[in-house]
């Protein structure tokens, strides 16, 4: 910063001494702007997207085409609306929707997720954090009435829950009480869609069968013992 006295200025005026040893050609090449931009910026991008984008995409496409059961149906309009609400309110940031193929996950939630289950999700909502439990095996686990009460006021069904309430998904009635809007109905339909396909068809790949062949939904409140 301020060591910039006259001495330094004098040093600047000196002719540069001859370099002790010239860097090798490879090093000089690697320092060049064009190398950094083409090999570093473009090259590593292409490499990473080929190796970890394109190759697994081809594999997954093939695998999904093989394993999707005939009974699989994409979301209907109501479930699609619910999916939109699910994304808009950021549900995936506290609830994952894939069961990992490890014992503690499978024991708590049910069979591990399979790729074909997600083939109509744009964009995927797997999530990277679980404040609440995973929801991918939610279908049939609870009644619609429970879901509505829980969405309207989570503390009414789970007293210690920290989930936000979603009153704007309900229409307040003049005499008290609330009626679910189309969005709330869609959201509950979507929650019931999650995991239905694998319950109907059973696991289709080694992955889903690996730990436990059962496709029964589990009560995730209590995990493995």
């Amino acid at each position: 910063m301020s060591g910039e006295g006259d001495t330094d200025m004098d040093a600047v005026q000196d002719p540069p001494p001859a370099p002790p040893g010239r860097p090798s050609r490879l090093v000089r090449m690697l320092e060049r702007g064009t190398t950094v931009m083409l090999l570093g910026g473009v090259g590593s991008l292409v490499l990473s997207f080929l190796a970890l984008g394109v190759v697994p995409t081809i594999e997954l496409t093939h695998q999904m085409n093989q394993s999707t059961p005939a009974s699989w149906k994409p979301m209907n309009a109501e479930e699609q609306l619910g999916f939109t609400v699910y994304k808009r309110e950021g549900c995936a940031y506290c609830h994952t929707t894939f069961v990992r193929d490890i014992p503690s996950d499978v024991a708590r939630f049910g069979p591990a997720g399979e790729a074909w289950e997600y083939r109509d999700q744009y964009p995927q909502q797997w999530g990277t954090r679980r404040v609440g439990p995973d929801l991918s095996r939610e279908s049939g686990l609870r009644s619609d009435a429970w879901h509505y009460a829980h969405l309207y006021d989570p503390r009414s069904t789970v007293p210690q829950s920290v989930m936000p309430a979603y009153p704007w998904l309900f229409q307040q009635q003049p005499g008290g009480g609330a009626v679910p809007t189309e969005e709330a109905r869609g959201l509950v339909a979507y929650l019931n869609y999650l995991g239905r396909a694998i319950q109907v068809s059973g696991a289709q790949t080694e992955r889903g069968r690996a730990v436990d062949g059962s496709t029964a939904t589990r009560n995730h409140d209590v995990g493995p013992r």
Binding site: G33, V36, M37, L38, G40, G41, V42, S44, L45, F49, L52, G53, P56, T57, L60, T61, M64, A115, E117, Y118, R119, D120, Q121, Y122, P123, Q124, W126
Partner: peptide
Amino acid sequence: ALALTFTPVAFVIGQFVPEYFAPGAIGAI
């Protein structure tokens, strides 16, 4: 030079492809 050349294409792939073109597991990749 690295950040400025790498990011625009990576941004396009990350923002637009999972939203419209790559469902589920592919989008997750």
